[in-house]
Design a protein around this nucleic acid. Sequence first.
DNA 1: TTGTATGCGTTATCAG
DNA 2: CTGATAACGCATACAA
Lengths: 354, 354
Amino acid sequence: MSEDLERRKRPTIHDVARQAGVAVGTVSRYLNGQDVRAGKRAEIERAVEALGFRRSALAAAMKGERTGLVGFMAPDFDEYHSALLNHLAQILRQSGQKLLTYSHATDGSLLRQSLDFLVEQRVDALVMAGLPNSQGILSAFHDEGIPVVVYNNDVRGERLDRVFVDNVKASSRAVGHLVDVGHRKIALVTGDPKDSTGVERRLGYEEALRRHDIPIDPAYVFVGDWKTEAGYNALQGFMALSDPPTAIFSSNYRMTTGVLEWLREHGLRTPQDIAIVSFDDVDLFRLYDDGITAVAQPLPLIAEAIAGYVATRLGDGEVPDIRSRTIECNIILRGSTRRPLPASPAERFGHDRY
Amino acid sequence: MSEDLERRKRPTIHDVARQAGVAVGTVSRYLNGQDVRAGKRAEIERAVEALGFRRSALAAAMKGERTGLVGFMAPDFDEYHSALLNHLAQILRQSGQKLLTYSHATDGSLLRQSLDFLVEQRVDALVMAGLPNSQGILSAFHDEGIPVVVYNNDVRGERLDRVFVDNVKASSRAVGHLVDVGHRKIALVTGDPKDSTGVERRLGYEEALRRHDIPIDPAYVFVGDWKTEAGYNALQGFMALSDPPTAIFSSNYRMTTGVLEWLREHGLRTPQDIAIVSFDDVDLFRLYDDGITAVAQPLPLIAEAIAGYVATRLGDGEVPDIRSRTIECNIILRGSTRRPLPASPAERFGHDRY
DNA sequence: TTGTATGCGTTATCAG
DNA sequence: CTGATAACGCATACAA
């Protein structure tokens, strides 16, 4: 019942060569799809099958310049990053690339360590969510011949490729939509201002208010840390104001989740009691009450852009040191921003017009 | 502006040795934390820093018996698998293991190909969601010295370790709960019966009905494919019956999402119009209406159990060919199973009693 | 402690 | 086309 599972030495091309009665070079050529006489080819195939031979990607990579590995690093695999991972995995599979994933848990020292690890594994390229504290250490990758592509957050000044969504415009449109349906007391739940997304989404919010001549009220701005609790606390604060907001723009799906938790706990509903727009689109938003209006990041496009950048860097054409792609978001209109207070009886039936 | 990013040859231990004025062996020993005279140690450290040397894990792995790589394979990185991936990544990091992830998109031929790929990368172990069509090819891994741990679905008869949740018991309790709150017309949305989870969750459902002397009505059973659409279609069918069910037990979160979509579209609410219990627990269920009662799989425990199995296999103790661990689920009671029809006026105020 | 030499499994080069 | 052989970068046994 109890057997010693010992790591039986795997067969090598030498074993295959011997069994097939050919030279190792011939086996190697066979494995790489080069021309081999039909007779020998059959012998080799038989030997491979019999021995259960699988070529060692390690040894192969030690010779060639490429491992075929693309490092993927994210703080953690939450809904956003794992959805992207999913798309990326599909695309990279097509081109024979493999994904070496690593999460660094937003810990600064772990970041350094994680990057070292990926270099040691000799990844051909590195894809990662930009981190403010990765300043200065990423260009080194580029200089050492490992192209880097960041997404989501920027890392200023580094030599690397960037794929972002147009945070400012999307946020501005989202907040503008709230104004359009009649709100003027619009609060913002934003994230860490060290993150470019934090800055940009806030910028979009401010721009929209300015455009509509609505003064920016600091009491209506909550700076959180992107986590669920922040959204919860934000609402707690907003609703305790003597003049609470009638609408919320929340900068990511996690904080929005916290917002919704608070509302649920306190028996408030959207859009009757408060309007909501969230950055990011997740299942929850489709189905919460009559839906939460959301800024949907086109993940498939983002993944494609990233993969494209990686591919051209790994190709042999000349590529500029720095490239950047900005992708537009879609705003998905849902019940949470339905017009709250019909201005006139005539509009009374306009509820469902979007 | 446009520079040829060429893969500068990385420095090797030889380069470090020369620069530091020591032998390669000494550098190697330094890298592996063995004793090196303080003076030379400093020289080496300086050289490593100056050259930007990073040891090649490939070459190192070619010598030793281990790569430190654990293969992780899932059909895709949806909320369930990526949450597990997340936990697993945290735990394996502690023990210096790295995760090589691969998704096979439920395609049978891709499965074979994906497995080959992982073997070629010389993973030390393989963690995967069991697949019915991986019968017969997984024991080969074990026999070749690559331990395999499956989770979620079983692969019958293979020599490998298993970590599951107690699907039968959890389902039975979930359905029992529906009976407890007054339902007798309980429908089942189940998944592919080729998957052990499909079979077991259905078994739990049937057992609960039997225990309560409720006949099993085939019209109340919908066999889906785990996807969102299946849940939607299930509801479509159930509600078209002359005597529709008053409660639904749905076997995974995706299908439940479909169920909720149908309800939303048709203006039905839970628990007023229909009661719901779902397997799996996701954000959506916490916040949909007054919450969806759900069977929560304890992902951290599952990840720990998996990591533990991997660790002992990779250790040098004797381990039985097959091990199995079954973990209990928690049932999270929420609004979707609140007692629908108070039997007597006295119970009228019992709504919130759980 | 340290240096030297050998091998790990491939691929590539160079003759044949 | 094919065979023999030299790298690739590191770890380790052995000798010093």
